[in-house]
Simulated scan of single mutants.
Amino acid sequence: MPSPRIAFLGAGNLASAIVRGLLDEKVCAPADLVCTSKGGETARKLAADTGIGHEADLARLLAGADTVIVAFKPQSLAAADPRLAELTRGKLVLSVLAGKKLATLARTFPHARALVRTMPNTPAAIGAAFTPYCSLAPLAEADRALVERLLNALGQFAALDESYFDALTAVGGSGPAFLFEFVAGLRDAAVAAGLPPDVAYRAALETTLGAARLLARSGQPPETLRDKVTSPNGTTYAGLQVLAQRDFRATLRDTIAAATARAAELSKDS
């Protein structure tokens, strides 16, 4: 089955991650994808880097597209070109805009044949995303299959109720940044403990990767694997005592709560 023609409204980091995921997994060829961006610079760069098309004129961009991926900045939705309502008539519209609810999206894309909200994260670029999705109305079988085919190219996906999306934005959308910060902190701590910077970074990165792979493959709860590493009164125990004293899990709860609250603020109608 030939790949559908997909138009990207926006060409920033998330759009780039999705494009690269689709191309790497061979779900689409470069000729099947086209993008645009405000000012055109990021669209030209994405096109040059990946071989996809770019088109500044909105009508020409959408003329041949069956699927439209909305990937500009969420705050730009309120000022989106009013022609989008008619130009997306009869098309499958898939949004990756953080915090923008289906009811809000429907005001900009009132005539879409199907309207889907998703929240992929940047690991989509290597086919390792977790992407929840929901739709304004039940999807026709062909549209559901298309949505899941696209999302499958990005990694794991799940159809979930929209009420979960603020928390999913905090965990899935923002979560990679929190993990990157953890690796940076582990690296800096290793340097402070006396390791050379290059060795410290390699040790922090590979330890994180290895532990995550082990966890994913084991099928066991993280606490079980933690306990297997921990000897009574050993080095791991000493470190875990500090995490417990500083209430590490409470810090993570506060982090996710803050991100969830911000997602809820962004989802309020302006």
Score class of each variant (00 low, 15 high):
residue 36 T to N: 11
residue 128 A to D: 09
residue 93 V to C: 13
residue 81 D to V: 07
residue 111 H to K: 13
residue 32 D to C: 04
residue 62 L to D: 04
residue 111 H to G: 02
residue 127 G to P: 00
residue 128 A to G: 09
residue 60 R to V: 02
residue 105 L to S: 07
residue 107 R to T: 11
residue 88 T to V: 07
residue 47 A to P: 05
residue 51 G to H: 00
residue 14 L to Q: 12
residue 59 A to V: 08
residue 130 F to Q: 12
residue 83 R to I: 00
residue 40 G to K: 10
residue 68 V to S: 03
residue 121 N to P: 13
residue 89 R to H: 09
residue 29 A to Q: 14
residue 107 R to F: 00
residue 118 T to K: 06
residue 36 T to G: 08
residue 94 L to I: 15
residue 110 P to D: 08
residue 111 H to Y: 13
residue 98 A to C: 07
residue 114 A to R: 09
residue 89 R to E: 14
residue 129 A to F: 14
residue 32 D to Y: 02
residue 98 A to V: 15
residue 24 D to N: 14
residue 53 G to R: 10
residue 54 H to L: 04
residue 43 A to S: 09
residue 112 A to Y: 04
residue 68 V to F: 02
residue 52 I to V: 15
residue 104 T to L: 04
residue 91 K to A: 06
residue 52 I to T: 09
residue 14 L to P: 01
residue 40 G to P: 12
residue 70 V to H: 12
residue 114 A to C: 10
residue 106 A to H: 14
residue 96 V to W: 04
residue 32 D to W: 06
residue 42 T to D: 05
residue 48 A to W: 03
residue 95 S to P: 11
residue 84 L to F: 02
residue 111 H to M: 06
residue 50 T to A: 13
residue 131 T to I: 12
residue 17 A to L: 07
residue 46 L to S: 05
residue 46 L to H: 05
residue 74 P to K: 11
residue 48 A to I: 00
residue 51 G to I: 01
residue 63 A to P: 01
residue 38 K to V: 14
residue 20 R to I: 13
residue 104 T to N: 03
residue 67 T to K: 06
residue 16 S to P: 03
residue 10 G to A: 09
residue 81 D to S: 07
residue 61 L to W: 07
residue 94 L to R: 04
residue 109 F to V: 05
residue 42 T to Q: 15
residue 65 A to P: 05
residue 74 P to G: 09
residue 59 A to D: 14
residue 57 D to G: 10
residue 41 E to M: 13
residue 36 T to L: 03
residue 128 A to Y: 07
residue 53 G to K: 04
residue 126 I to D: 08
residue 11 A to F: 04
residue 59 A to W: 01
residue 58 L to G: 05
residue 47 A to T: 03
residue 29 A to D: 12
residue 24 D to I: 00
residue 44 R to I: 01
residue 15 A to E: 06
residue 67 T to H: 11
residue 58 L to W: 01
residue 58 L to Y: 02
residue 19 V to N: 10
residue 125 A to C: 10
residue 54 H to V: 00
residue 102 L to K: 12
residue 90 G to I: 09
residue 96 V to N: 02
residue 30 P to Y: 13
residue 29 A to S: 15
residue 71 A to L: 06
residue 117 R to T: 11
residue 39 G to S: 12
residue 36 T to P: 08
residue 46 L to T: 05
residue 81 D to T: 09
residue 30 P to S: 13
residue 61 L to V: 04
residue 11 A to H: 00
residue 104 T to S: 14
residue 27 V to H: 04
residue 29 A to Y: 04
residue 110 P to L: 08
residue 71 A to K: 03
residue 81 D to K: 08
